[in-house]
Write a protein that binds this DNA or RNA. Structure first.
Lengths: 192, 192
DNA sequence: CTAAACATGTAAAGCGTTACATGATTCG
DNA sequence: CGAATCATGTAACGCTTTACATGTTTAG
């Protein structure tokens, strides 16, 4: 059910077609909520049916068509209501830490490979988040710039600070994972 | 598909009934892979059908019955093969950081409540992981003790070190979340 | 005898993944 | 004219959640 809020977050800045949305999605909110296009298109239809969006049918060339989605008042309300609901922190489902929980059963070679891959994965993520932060600060982040253009100038500094803060959360998490996995590698060095 | 490996992890230490498994599950591997009983019972049946488990039908009293599940050789192999597969790190789906990504749009009051709840949630988790670590080190953790009893004495120190290491990963993550959310609260103090 | 614990599921609905399927337009 | 990009979906399958459903045994 979070998918629709992720979509609303992008659309509230301005109307987008399913295709544009999908492209922007994967390089912004997709960082924290993955969804393939085959999930996005039907969800947009459902949101339209639920009155959160209004679709404006456009033509492109002679036979081309596209649907520009606009957020309705009800959609804007749904987005802001979402912030007031307490978040549910129930179901954990973490393949990496599931595996880590039984590392003592694995061959040292397999354990090492797992931890190496974990370090690689999170190093890559950390670099990605760092470059997102750089892009936000330097005014080169397309989705953030769209958002900033839609709010009064006086509020932009605050908005940038919070966007950076959000990515810092991902950075710190990645850093914690790297530190932990590196300690695991040292454990393997010591205990085999 | 990870559920079956979580179940195998518990069963490989010794046979258990669905009920016992479900109880042990929620206080051990359930910390990293949530599953309700309504998912566990059918999955055990499927694993039996796939040859990973063998069910021993027992009676309890006059009309009571239960099924004790034993890991087959094929099941043991499946568990150890699982460690050799590279882990897939694709789909992220993180409600808390999704919300955090749009914190600038929220009312300061709602943002504060969200961050407070985040701190509370992860403080509670951190305490839980710390007490798990204490229980492991003091020999009071039931599932870990079962596991230790099944391996040679010489390997037990190593196994304990790795179990502690696994929980430390959860601890560090919780700590990172707390630090981050507290910085967010200070941001709110400064910027409103 | 009653409550708690033991014991095992089914059903429906929703969410998510993967594969498939199709066609138009624009740029070089 | 061919490739890249624009554009929008459907279908089948599997996983997960929530709610429902039922009965036995044991301890006090």
């Amino acid at each position: 059910m979070s998918l629709r809020y992720a979509l609303l977050a992008l659309l509230r800045v301005g109307p987008l077609s399913g295709y544009e949305l999908q492209k922007l999605f994967s390089e912004s909110v997709g960082h924290v909520w993955h969804a393939p296009d085959s999930q996005i298109y039907p969800e947009l239809r459902r949101m339209e049916a639920d009155g959160l969006l209004l679709a404006e049918e456009q033509t492109r060339g002679v036979h081309g068509r596209r649907r520009m989605y606009h957020v309705t008042e009800e959609g804007a309300r749904a987005f802001s209501d979402w912030f007031d609901e307490p978040l549910e922190y129930s179901r954990v489902r973490d393949p990496a830490h599931l595996r880590a929980a039984y590392l003592e059963s694995a061959e040292p070679r397999a354990a090492r490979e797992f931890l190496d891959a974990h370090v690689r994965q999170h190093t890559e993520l950390r670099n990605r988040w760092q470059s997102e932060i750089d892009r936000i600060r330097s005014g080169a982040h397309p989705m953030v710039e769209r958002r900033l253009a839609a709010i009064p100038e006086a509020e932009r500094g605050r908005a940038v600070a919070f966007k950076v803060f959000a990515y810092e959360g991902l950075m710190e998490r990645a850093t914690a994972e790297i530190r932990w996995a590196e300690r695991g590698l040292r454990l393997l060095d010591d205990l085999g």
